[in-house]
Simulated scan of single mutants.
Amino acid sequence: MLAALTGMGLSAAAGLNAYIPFLVVALVARFTDVITLPAAYAWIESGWAIGIGALLLLVEVVLDKVALVDTVNDAIQTFVRPATGGLIFAATAAADDLEQSSGLLAENPWIAVVLGVLLSGVVHGAKATVRPAIDAGSLGTATPVVSAAEDGASVGLSLVAVFWPVLVIFALFGLLAALVWLLVLVRGWRQRRRARAGG
């Protein structure tokens, strides 16, 4: 159960920023005993994977703060974020299975991949849908603020998923509430813009 909660939290975090949960898992696995990755996933904690992940994170953090550029970046990330979500869910489920060699995820590792892809894909889809409206509604002024909030949420969700997986459900509800709030905000911006254009 905890492995599934960890995987869910990390996959949702990957939907916001693919490289943050990847690096959290890589660094925790490399420098602590909290996560022990099986041989098939040991490359995640290698120096070259951490270096490439850090470089890609830096690029993502910069590009995602610029209005319109963030939309292009989100289009590119449509493939990366779900794939990372699936990878991280599978890796952490497999790591847990080393210790408890039974259970649904141990017997069907493909389930972890599918769940990770789906969950991160849903979060990414919501982000990619809301962000262009925020860019347009705020004339780009809210873009860096919203992006920084998403990065913070990805870091927080990743850390909760790894260290306190029982809290993942609450964190996911919080993420859902934030997305709903953003959708309501975007709808309000659109209605005000239509009213101004009509009047």
Rank of each mutant, 00 (worst) to 15 (best):
M1I: 09
M1P: 15
L2S: 13
L2Y: 15
L2Q: 14
A3Y: 00
L5D: 07
L5T: 00
T6D: 11
T6R: 15
T6Q: 15
T6M: 15
M8P: 05
G9W: 00
L10R: 07
S11G: 03
A14H: 04
N17F: 05
Y19H: 06
I20E: 04
L23V: 02
L23P: 09
L23W: 00
V25G: 04
R30Q: 09
F31V: 01
V34M: 06
V34G: 05
V34R: 10
T36K: 13
L37V: 01
A40L: 14
A40D: 14
Y41Q: 07
I44L: 04
E45G: 12
S46F: 08
G47P: 14
A49M: 12
I50S: 11
I50L: 12
I52E: 04
I52F: 06
I52K: 02
I52G: 06
G53P: 04
A54R: 03
L57R: 03
L57E: 05
V61I: 13
V61A: 15
V62H: 04
D64R: 11
K65C: 10
K65M: 13
V66Y: 13
V66Q: 14
T71G: 13
N73L: 08
D74G: 11
A75K: 09
I76N: 08
I76C: 10
Q77S: 07
Q77D: 07
F79W: 10
V80S: 10
V80F: 10
A83K: 02
T84S: 11
G85H: 00
G85I: 00
L87I: 08
I88K: 05
F89H: 05
A91V: 05
A94Y: 10
A95W: 03
D96I: 03
D97P: 09
D97I: 09
Q100E: 13
S101D: 15
S102G: 12
G103F: 06
L104I: 12
L105V: 08
E107L: 14
G116V: 01
V117F: 10
L119M: 01
L119D: 04
G121W: 00
V123H: 03
V123A: 03
H124P: 07
H124Y: 10
G125Y: 14
A126K: 11
K127C: 06
A128T: 01
T129P: 06
R131N: 11
I134H: 05
D135M: 08
A136Y: 06
S138E: 11
L139F: 15
T141L: 13
T143Y: 10
V145M: 13
V145P: 14
S147H: 09
D151F: 07
D151A: 13
G152R: 05
G156S: 01
L157P: 14
L157K: 02
V160L: 12
V160M: 04
F163M: 01
P165L: 00
V166M: 15
L167S: 11
F170M: 07
F170W: 09
F173M: 09
F173D: 02
G174R: 05
L175H: 04
L176C: 06
L179N: 05
L185G: 03
V186C: 11
R187H: 15
R187C: 10
W189F: 15
Q191K: 08
A195S: 11
G198H: 02
